[in-house]
């Protein structure tokens, strides 16, 4: 019991210190938080033009594979939320850099796990981000509430949405951490990361709703874990996941989370065995 409490106290301290670190550079933090909204504006304008063209000037009557213009805007706003949970900027490249420079030593000599430490630091960064971004998020959603034509989902879907979001954070973290840990073998993972980001961009649903894909690609993509990073939480919120499939899908997502937790842990263990103390 005492050991568990001491561990929790340690986690809490890491969380607080990582939070403090995040707030040191106030200007950069504020700018980074607010600028997150810019890409979505450009995407909305792009789809605006597409729907206008298809609807011959009346975009509200146009429809692309079951998506109206309102559905599309709502979808993008929701994927923005998903990605705020699941994206891990700098995680994989940071791990590879620490391996290359030898900084990783500190996790080997101190009684703390690297993955546990990085997870808590990342959680702190997300908390700091949300505590500031919640207001602009509310403002944007309030302005755009008209695009959510079906209103709020039922409570069970909402609960599924929150669960999918929380798991997308863990999935994003352990997936990127696994890529970063490949640095134990390749030292440099930037090309690998570029390929991953490319696939992530298209296959997570960040670029377009995945149910727009024709067969057999839709089935293929739905078997990959990437859809849980952006598309899937948004699809639950918009009622595009049949209620009877929700629990099963959430279990599959949980399975992927466990798979990448195990992958990252095994990669770390094997990598440390291979590690020869780069960086003097």
């Amino acid at each position: 019991m005492n050991a568990a409490l001491a561990r929790a106290a340690g986690w809490w301290t890491i969380l607080c210190i990582a939070l403090e670190e995040r707030l040191v550079y106030r200007g950069d933090f504020a700018l980074g938080t607010l600028m997150r909204f810019l890409p979505i504006v450009t995407q909305i304008f792009l789809w605006w033009a597409i729907f206008d063209t298809i609807g011959h000037g009346t975009r509200d009557s146009a429809n692309i594979v079951g998506y109206s213009f309102s559905n599309m805007v709502a979808y993008y706003l929701l994927t923005m939320v998903s990605r705020a949970f699941s994206s891990m900027p700098g995680l994989a490249s940071g791990i590879a850099l620490q391996i290359r420079s030898g900084e990783i030593k500190k996790y080997l000599i101190q009684p703390i796990g690297m993955l546990e430490f990085l997870l808590l630091s990342r959680l702190a960064h997300k908390l700091a981000y949300y505590s500031v971004a919640v207001l602009p998020f509310l403002l944007v959603f309030s302005i755009c509430r008209g695009y959510f034509v079906d209103g709020w989902p039922a409570w069970d879907l909402l609960a599924g949405y929150v669960a999918a979001l929380l798991m997308s954070f863990l999935l994003g973290f352990f997936l990127e951490a696994s890529i970063g840990l490949i640095g134990f073998w390749f030292l440099e993972v930037s090309s690998l990361l570029f390929i991953y980001m490319l696939f992530n961009f298209f296959l997570s649903g960040h670029m377009f709703p995945l149910d727009m894909l024709p067969a057999p690609w839709d089935r293929l993509v739905s078997m990959l874990p990437l859809k849980y990073l952006a598309y899937y939480p948004a699809a639950i919120f918009l009622g595009k996941v049949p209620r009877e499939e929700l629990i099963g899908e959430l279990w599959i997502e949980a399975g992927w989370v466990v798979f990448f937790i195990v992958t990252a842990r095994v990669a770390y263990r094997l990598g440390v065995r291979r590690y020869s103390g780069y960086g003097g």
């Binding site: 001491a6 106290a9 809490w12 301290t13 890491i14 210190i17 403090e20 670190e21 040191v24 550079y25």
Partner: peptide, 18 residues
């Protein structure tokens, strides 16, 4: 921790080493 006062790193060490 580069951007924080050393006191914060010491507090973290206190917890890590219990």
């Amino acid at each position: 921790w580069w951007d924080l006062p050393a006191q914060e790193s010491f507090r973290l060490h206190q917890q890590i080493y219990r």
